[in-house]
């Protein structure tokens, strides 16, 4: 069963069954059969009863994700922030299951539909990153990390002048895939580097190489996407890994992803340290510009992206 927050469900005739927990912790029972109209008043009644979550059977996951995108994410009357939140929530469980799966096919298939949807929702004139930040989750989970990094990459690339939607979708896919090499690291029960065995630490450090190896023989990925995966831990000063490439030897998309990756990591919950505020994190990016990060891209991130304020009327 795929959980979905009640407030993310559109009042509509849905093409998938909905289940709910009659009592907290009980097995979900059928709430609404597919095609049976669901009204806003029904959803409000559920919330009033304290029901926060509905469930969709796993067999319906594709129809569910498709309809949620069409009904909510493509609806111009819905705010960009809410569209982002729904898109994020409907894909979470499927992503987590696919990421843990033995074969990568399910994950690749999910990401190939999520990437263009994310680009569609995020790359808009009226989206303000500070508004979005308050809605974004900041946990250290792999799904949150991949989606947030992809969101930041899209926003940064657009601010740098990338306007071609096909290119933005391609970048989103690369960013969603950037940590795919971590699929092979067994980290159960450990959330901090100090708690890892030497073997786990080595595996973790090798994740860009492992991710690259997993994707490079497939013909659906571009070199730019592969470089996002392989080079996102390289540093402009050559002190990064796995190669120690410098400056323009690092693909521009990997330079974008490096900033997005670090920004999300330092602003997210972590067992070792408290998350930094936006301002503190921007200071870190500024201090590392020219060493870890491309100076021009870092400047664009700190000024153009984060200084933008809303022009919408509330």
């Amino acid at each position: 069963m795929i959980p979905i927050p009640v407030d993310a469900v559109p009042a509509s005739s849905l093409n998938f069954d909905l289940y709910f927990e009659r009592e907290r912790g009980a097995a979900p029972v059928l709430y609404r059969k597919r095609w049976h109209p669901l009204e806003q008043a029904d959803l409000e009644r559920l919330l009033k009863r304290g029901v926060q979550t509905l469930y969709v059977p796993s067999v319906d996951q594709e129809a569910f994700r498709e309809q949620m995108f069409e009904e909510v994410c493509q609806d111009e009357t819905v705010s960009p922030e809410r569209r982002y939140k729904v898109l994020r929530d409907v894909n979470r469980v499927v992503f987590d299951m696919a990421f843990r799966g033995r074969e990568s096919e399910d994950l690749m298939s999910l990401l190939s539909s999520l990437a263009p949807q994310l680009a569609f929702v995020i790359c808009r004139e009226d989206l303000v990153v500070r508004d979005l930040f308050s809605l974004m989750e900041h946990d250290s989970g792999i799904y949150t990390h991949c989606v947030n990094v992809a969101v930041y990459c899209l926003i940064l690339a657009a601010a740098l002048g990338m306007t071609d939607m096909a290119e933005l979708e391609e970048l989103a896919m690369g960013a969603l895939l950037h940590d795919i090499g971590k699929r092979h690291v067994q980290l159960a029960g450990t959330k901090q580097m100090s708690g890892l065995t030497r073997q786990q630490r080595e595996q973790l450090q090798r994740h860009p190489t492992v991710g690259f190896q997993e994707l490079v023989l497939r013909d659906q990925y571009t070199w730019a996407q592969l470089m996002v995966v392989y080079q996102h831990h390289e540093r402009i000063d050559g002190q990064g890994s796995p190669v120690g490439s410098v400056e323009h030897e690092i693909h521009p998309w990997a330079r974008i992803c490096a900033i997005a990756d670090v920004f999300h990591s330092i602003t997210s919950d972590n067992a070792v340290r408290a998350p930094l505020t936006i301002e503190q994190a921007l200071n870190v990016i500024d201090q590392q510009a020219g060493a870890s990060f491309d100076r021009e891209i870092a400047k664009c991130w700190n000024t153009k992206v984060w200084k933008k304020t809303s022009s919408r009327k509330s």
Binding site: T209, F212, Q213, V216, L217, Y230, V243, S245, E249
Partner: peptide
């Protein structure tokens, strides 16, 4: 070698 080569 004078050029970067890639894993695999």
């Amino acid at each position: 070698h004078s050029e970067q080569l890639f894993p695999m």
